[in-house]
């Protein structure tokens, strides 16, 4: 369990994290989503006690990270910026971390094998590719078999096989009762990985809800219609007493986008009107768009009244 309470971090005049309160629960994967510069990495550094909050607090397993006797067993962390001396081998890097908690050498060799670095473990970490660096970071995170995993952009630089490996690893860790907190600026990655999502924009909490709810909200929108009589169909759909709440806009020579009606309703109306349809498809607004929408709201928040925070949920 990670609990942040009114967590705030200011660098001079700039507020990187603004009054953030959230809880990350065990047993599921919680995504931490926001555009670059939204304060995700700063928040993660504060969880680890690397940065001190300007105000507010964050605890892991009930108390601040630094007060734990075996910190590596409480939180395993992969920070976005590399945290490895470039002149040291992966093996010695892990061995040195293990020594602080008297973790056996055999465990070091195990995690090296788990992340697939056994062939390069004795080479300088400075020569590692981005993907190998990520694997080494994950090996250090897993070293003490921690209850909580905090991973900043773990799939960065990994090949498709590596991405799949991370997803499976995170899912099995969560299923095993671990708390898994993963940041990303890619909604698409979160959509396939996370069970729950915390969205931040400009350091503020934008949303804190189950992934399924977010997908439901995002996909409730328009239907794309293709017809040789697009203009006539649009006019017919948006006219008359049944058209309340319906919008139909022509988007091309033979295409229109309709909201307020289901695909079935549009098909039925077209048949009644004697207009032929060449295409009829519900448009699932992508999660990426939903995410952009949320962060745009946050930008507008400063200029106008705070409306449209429908995604903020007590879930």
């Amino acid at each position: 369990m990670i609990e942040a309470t009114n967590l705030t971090k200011k660098y001079g005049d700039k507020t990187a994290v603004d009054d953030l309160s959230f809880a990350v629960r065990p047993g599921i994967i919680t995504g931490f989503l926001g555009p670059n510069g939204a304060g995700k990495s700063t928040t993660m550094r504060m969880i680890l006690g690397l940065d001190a909050p300007t105000s507010g607090a964050v605890t892991v397993g009930g108390k601040p990270y630094r007060e734990h006797a075996r910190p590596l067993q409480v939180v395993g962390v992969l920070l976005e910026a590399r945290a490895v001396h470039t002149s040291r081998s992966a093996y010695h890097h892990l061995l040195a971390l293990a020594a602080t908690h008297s973790i056996a050498k055999s465990r070091v060799l195990d995690v090296i094998e788990m992340v697939g670095l056994q062939d390069v473990a004795r080479k300088r970490a400075g020569g590692f590719s981005l993907g190998m660096g990520q694997r080494l970071g994950i090996a250090s995170a897993l070293l003490a078999d921690p209850e909580i995993l905090v991973l900043d952009e773990p799939v960065n630089g990994l090949d498709p096989e590596g991405i799949r490996w991370i997803r499976d690893l995170l899912k099995s860790l969560a299923a095993d009762g671990h708390t898994v907190f993963v940041s990303s600026h890619l909604m698409s990655e979160m959509a396939v990985t996370a069970d729950h999502v915390i969205v931040v924009g400009r350091g503020r909490l934008m949303a804190d809800l189950p992934m399924a709810d977010l997908i439901a909200q995002a996909s409730s929108s328009a239907v794309l219609v293709s017809s040789p009589e697009a203009v006539a169909l649009a006019a017919a759909l948006s006219a008359g007493p049944a058209a309340a709440g319906v919008t139909a806009s022509v988007t091309g020579g033979q295409t229109l986008e309709v909201t307020g009606l289901t695909a079935a309703q549009i098909g039925d109306r077209a048949r009644d009107l004697g207009i032929s349809l060449h295409g009829l498809a519900p448009k699932r607004a992508s999660l990426e768009e939903a995410f952009m929408e949320m962060t745009r709201d946050e930008v507008e928040y400063h200029a106008t009244t705070p409306t449209g925070h429908t995604l903020r949920s007590a879930a």
Partner: peptide, 9 residues
């Protein structure tokens, strides 16, 4: 190198 974050972690 950023190693200090691992050290203090």
């Amino acid at each position: 190198t950023g190693m200090v974050r691992a050290t203090f972690g």
